[in-house]
Structure formats: C-alpha cells, structure tokens
Amino acid sequence: MSLSLLAPGVHSLPGAVNSVVLEDGRGGGLLVDTGLDDAHARRLVRALDMAGLTPTGILNTHSHADHHGGNAHILKKFPDLKIFAPPLEAAIITHPILEPITLFGARPPRELQSKFLLAPPSPARLAPEPGLTRIGGVSVELIEVAGHASMMYAVRVGDVLYAADALFGPEALAKHPLTFCADSALQKESAARLGELEGVRVTLPGHGDPTDDLAGLVAANLAAYERTTDAVLAAVRAGAASVDELLARVCGAMDVTMTTAGAVVLNRAVVSAHLTELLEAGQVEMKVEQNRLVFNC
C-alpha cells in the first residue's frame, strides 16, 4: 500500500491505526505512530521505499501498544533512529509491561500479555514540550491532548491536524461505545480544545478516515464521551455497586458484549475514569462496605 497524500509533504498510511509521514524536504520523513505490530511496520517501510523516503525519526503520540508496536521492527532496519514520546508515555514505551500492569493492577496473567496490550520495548526519549518545534528535521506543532492516555500529543503541520486518539472516526466510535480513556474529564477538554483550532483543513483521527469537518468530528466525540458518563451515572443510581458490577450494568445499557479478559480490563478502566470524574463533580460517592469498594449516589 502506498502513502496517501494529505498535503504537500504530509502523508498517511491508513490502517486499523493510522501512521503519518512528514517529509523533511531532503528525502527523509518523520514517522508519527508505527502501528500495532510488525505487519503494519512492514507496510510502512514499503510505503516509504515506494515514496523514495528514509525515516529520520519516530514520534509516538502516546504509549498504547497499537501506536508503538511497530517501533521494534523499524529499529531493526534503521537502528540509529531516535524515538520521541510525551512524558510518562516514553517510560511505558521503554518498559511496555507497565501498560498491562496498570490495567490489571498487578503482574498480568498471560492472556493480558497479548500484542494488543504489550508491545515490544523500544528506547523512547522525551519529546519536546508542546508548541512549535523540530523533530527528525521536520517542523511540527505539538498539542497536548491528555485524557485518552495520561499524556498524548496531537500533531499539526500547516493546515493538517493528526489528532491521534483525542478524536475517533464515526466507525470507531460505533464499534467501541466505551471509548478508552485514562481521564474522562481531560478527554473531553482535549477534544473541545481541538475544536477551537482555526485554519485546519484536514483532520486525521488515530482511527478513521481524514475529514474536512473538524467541528463535526469533535461534536461526535464529545457526544460519545458524554453518553458514557451518563451511562455510568445511571448505573450508580441503580444502587450501590462495585466497579465490576457497574461495568456489567453499563455494558448492558450500551449493548456491549465482552468476551475476553482484555476487553474487560480496558472497559473497566473506562468506567473507573468516568467514576472519578463523577466523584470530583460531587455526583457520586465512594465508600467501603462489607469489604467492598462501592459507589452510590
């Protein structure tokens, strides 16, 4: 598959997770997110070859495995490449076991060590702070969009915005009603802040197709995030319950069926994030009852 042109010198490699290639004007390209695994990374390397480009560096927008799982394969071919990521996210990319440990709360069982939750390690370093900067010989604007992950950067070049996972395409929102987040309040703030950007012609979400309707994409994401908050609040109002009990109620209300341990721990984290938001807003309470941590109104 060849690269798709978003603007002069700005390309994407469409996939389950999108990668972005930013030309440096000298035959090189900065890679933004490398996909889930070796298969995506091989497609990315082939696309670079077809375009006559050589990678100059890697920027991972955040530490979820589907955005940096291709790093290791690319480093085998280009061992001198430097990898950049936001604070905290760089540590997880360097030590990926931290992702399933965080989700499970302890050393994760084998089922939670799949490639979807545990990418190969790669030596990441801190990316520059948000704002205008240069990485891999390319001038970019880094925009802090924490919420989906503890830290995350969107990347803007001219009138093209790569929103990473601060925004999802409509199909992704429909497929995953419980949109993953580490901090649901920040997730909403980040999406809303992207909607205030001026002069954006093309927006590429981390999952989904490019669009010229940034405002519409932001509105769809904010509506999805609020639906989850409302579903969690309704679940608590149905009676005091633990996170796992609330997760079951929320999944029932949102027509979500979980069949793997990975899905359970991911969606459990989403419910926990929205519970924290509701706690801080004074809409729910947390207490210990009969050796159980429960939430009620």
Rank of each mutant, 00 (worst) to 15 (best):
I74R: 10
V256G: 10
S114Q: 01
R227E: 15
A220L: 14
L44G: 00
E144L: 12
P121G: 04
D212M: 15
V200W: 12
A164N: 00
L194K: 07
S19C: 06
D230A: 11
A235S: 14
V157M: 05
T133I: 09
Y225V: 15
L22P: 07
D230Y: 03
S63E: 12
A149D: 10
G206A: 08
L194C: 03
S139I: 11
S272V: 07
A127N: 07
N221C: 12
G70R: 03
T133Y: 13
G105L: 06
G29M: 03
L194V: 05
L217V: 08
M1P: 08
E89T: 02
R193M: 11
L44T: 02
N18Q: 10
N18S: 15
I135A: 02
A253Q: 09
R237N: 11
R46W: 09
G27S: 12
I93W: 07
G105Q: 00
N291G: 09
V140Y: 02
V250I: 09
A47W: 06
L279S: 00
A273L: 11
F84W: 15
E189S: 14
A154Y: 02
L5C: 14
L293I: 08
S122C: 11
A174K: 13
V140L: 05
S190W: 07
A223Q: 10
Q290M: 13
N267E: 13
L197A: 07
L112R: 01
L53S: 05
G169Q: 06
A219M: 02
E89A: 15
R43I: 00
Q113F: 00
L22T: 10
S63N: 14
L59D: 09
K82I: 13
C251N: 08
R292C: 08
H40E: 08
V45W: 05
A172P: 06
D37R: 10
C251S: 05
D255S: 10
L167Y: 12
M254C: 07
R156F: 01
L3R: 04
P177R: 09
N221S: 12
T259E: 11
A124D: 02
G27M: 11
Q283D: 09
G28F: 00
G206R: 01
S184K: 00
L246S: 01
Q290F: 15
L197C: 11
D49F: 14
R46P: 09
A7E: 09
A16T: 03
V288R: 01
G169L: 03
D255P: 04
P123Y: 13
T179W: 06
K77R: 11
T34L: 12
V270H: 04
G216Y: 14
V160D: 01
I58W: 02
I101C: 10
A65W: 09
L222R: 02
E111A: 14
G105E: 00
L266D: 07
A163P: 08
L275K: 03
I93P: 02
A163Q: 03
G206Y: 04
R249P: 04
A146K: 08
L186H: 10
A146Y: 06
G25W: 04
N267W: 15
G262W: 09
R227C: 10
P109K: 03
A65G: 14
L118W: 06
G206M: 03
L118H: 05
